[in-house]
Design a protein around this nucleic acid. Structure first.
Length: 349
DNA sequence: AAACCGGGGTG
DNA sequence: CACCCAGGTTT
């Protein structure tokens, strides 16, 4: 076992990528990076990470920030729930003076910090000897030990137990990052480069010729198709657009978008009923796929002919605020990629 | 259009 | 422990 650890740590020391969050030991910065890196690739995260830390340098600064600002800084990263939970977590941490707890069990009590992130912060920022399992580690372990269980189910528990057992006591942070780095660069989902793998000689899947069939991953549910009607209401004099902010906890909650309603074309009337607009014209269709939904959006254009305030929004419309903004100021708002696509589709050519 | 990236929360 | 929920990019 010591041999395995020596080998991987040595490989990591030689091959590790120089990433911004590897240049700090600030637990808050590491926390932010770990949340951003969930489901999002390194190259995408880097500019967001730099900007976010500049804007919200400490947990307290983040805790005090308006949710709109936080979502604006997250705009385009996706999985906006992460940003809302990170803000929740920052508020929780601010109540205790602004410092994250230094051990895994206490970290698990912070909103938005689950098993993976707790292990990452505890080991990387605080040097606690605990393991972690992300998708990379799950894949590496599934192959290294030929785990025949579903890695989306029981196999994950098996991997978590292994992670805690195997963690290098003298440098847990480096060990965990080494495992993830191996999964990200060598032990990749398809066409892994076993020839370059420092652990090939200890790898059970490699020895048994089963690398291609592991890990075992159960099927995910197919996204459900939904139709949506969206209105881009434009003010004549300056081209400013009416936007509304989604309330609640669901998809795109807290983000700004052209007002929309789910359903077929006949639902347009219900949407038009509360908007100060002229005649609707359908100017395009936008397709957008999320993990659980496949959205087909009818993009409708209309002239904005009056004004509107919060109080005019019907309670069941799904919005809690409205605003008329010019495209130049979109960057100040939390905006999904779908909303950007809808606005772009409505722009006169 | 399909494949890929995978972690938090709840019951 | 099972199950639900949540975007964007690459190929």
């Amino acid at each position: 076992m010591a041999h395995l650890q020596q080998t991987l740590l040595k490989w990591y020391a030689a091959c590790r990528r120089d990433l911004p969050w590897r240049r700090t030991r600030d637990p808050y910065a590491i926390w932010v990076s770990e949340i951003m890196l969930q489901q999002t690739r390194v190259e995408t995260v880097i500019p967001y990470y730099e900007r976010f830390l500049q804007r919200f340098p400490t947990a307290i600064a983040l805790a005090e920030a308006p949710p709109d600002d936080v979502l604006a800084a997250w705009s385009g990263l996706g999985y906006y729930r992460r940003a809302r939970l990170l803000l929740d977590g920052a508020r929780t941490v601010a109540l205790r003076g602004g410092a994250l707890p230094g051990d895994r069990a206490a970290l698990l009590g912070v909103p938005g910090i689950g098993r993976y992130t707790a292990g990452a912060i505890a080991s990387i920022a605080f040097g606690q000897a605990v393991g972690l399992v992300d998708g990379n580690v799950a894949r590496v372990f599934a192959r290294l030990f030929a785990i025949d269980e579903d890695m989306r189910k029981a196999g994950m528990r098996t991997a978590e137990a292994l992670a805690d057992d195997l963690v290098a006591k003298d440098d847990p942070g480096a060990w965990n990052q080494a495992l993830m780095e191996l999964g990200a660069t060598i032990c990749t989902p398809r066409s892994p480069t076993c020839g370059a793998c420092p652990l090939a000689s200890c790898c059970r899947a490699f020895a048994e010729g089963r690398v291609a069939e592991l890990p075992i991953l159960s099927e995910k549910k197919a996204p459900v198709a939904r139709r949506v009607q969206a209105v881009v209401a434009t003010r004549e004099k300056d081209g400013a657009i009416l936007l509304a902010r989604r309330r609640g906890e669901g998809t795109f909650a807290g983000l700004w978008e052209p007002p929309s309603i789910e359903g077929p074309a006949k639902m347009r009337a219900r949407l038009a009923a509360w908007l100060p607009i002229g005649k609707l014209r359908r100017v395009g269709v936008v397709e957008h796929v999320l993990s659980h939904r496949k959205l087909t959006v009818d993009v409708l254009r209309a002239d904005l002919v009056g004004s509107l305030s919060k109080a005019d929004i019907p309670p069941n419309a799904g919005y809690d605020d409205v605003r008329v903004v010019r495209e130049a100021t979109f960057d100040d708002l939390g905006f999904s990629t779908l909303a950007r696509k809808v606005v772009a589709a409505a722009r006169p050519k």
